[in-house]
């Protein structure tokens, strides 16, 4: 097996990672780049905990090989906060009580970020649809949906 070098942009910075090809993007982010906010919950694309924003779209990083990240623009939760402070979505998750055990939270926030970047004023149904690939076992989702709507409203200058 020949090692490969993956060149990509992670959290707004260019990186080059020398890695065995039999590693997933999830492994590369967690192990090689120490971005441990990316969580492994099911390893089969079902739970959404390992969601990252990949070229603007949310994808489950357990379904992507490290080599496939060549040339990609990747955002993890570490790349969302502003000057070490929570951004509008992160703050809304705190304020709405959308965080319990916290394991699904990184994937939830990233999926919400990707949604709001495309659709700054989603309806409740659109939020539910967009977040449907992220499972949460604690909250029952109501407060998560509330948080995303709150973030959207605040970002548009309301509240």
């Amino acid at each position: 097996m020949n090692k490969i070098t993956v060149h990509c942009t992670v959290n707004h910075k260019p990186v080059a990672v020398e890695i065995d090809p039999n590693k997933r993007l999830l492994d590369m982010l967690r192990e090689d780049l120490n971005l441990t906010s990316v969580k492994e919950g099911c390893s089969e694309g079902e739970c959404g905990a390992c969601t990252v924003i990949f070229n603007g779209e949310p994808v489950t990083s357990c379904c992507v090989l490290a080599g496939q990240a060549e040339g990609a623009d990747i955002i993890t939760l570490e790349g969302v906060s502003v000057d070490g402070k929570p951004d509008v979505v992160q703050q809304a998750f705190m304020d709405a009580g959308a965080v319990q055990c916290g394991f699904c939270t990184p994937g939830m926030i990233l999926t919400a970020e990707a949604l709001l970047a495309k659709n700054p004023a989603p309806t409740e149904e659109e939020v539910k649809q967009a977040m449907s690939g992220n499972l949460c076992r604690c909250t029952g989702y109501a407060k998560i949906v509330e948080a995303v709507l709150l973030a959207a409203e605040r970002a548009r200058g309301g509240v």
Partner: peptide, 21 residues
């Protein structure tokens, strides 16, 4: 009230067991 540990959790810095190295 804001849940006490929610800041670390939304920032992605909360350390779960698998995150220890």
């Amino acid at each position: 009230h804001v849940k006490v540990d929610s800041l670390e959790k939304v920032m992605g810095t909360a350390k779960f067991a698998a995150d220890y190295k």
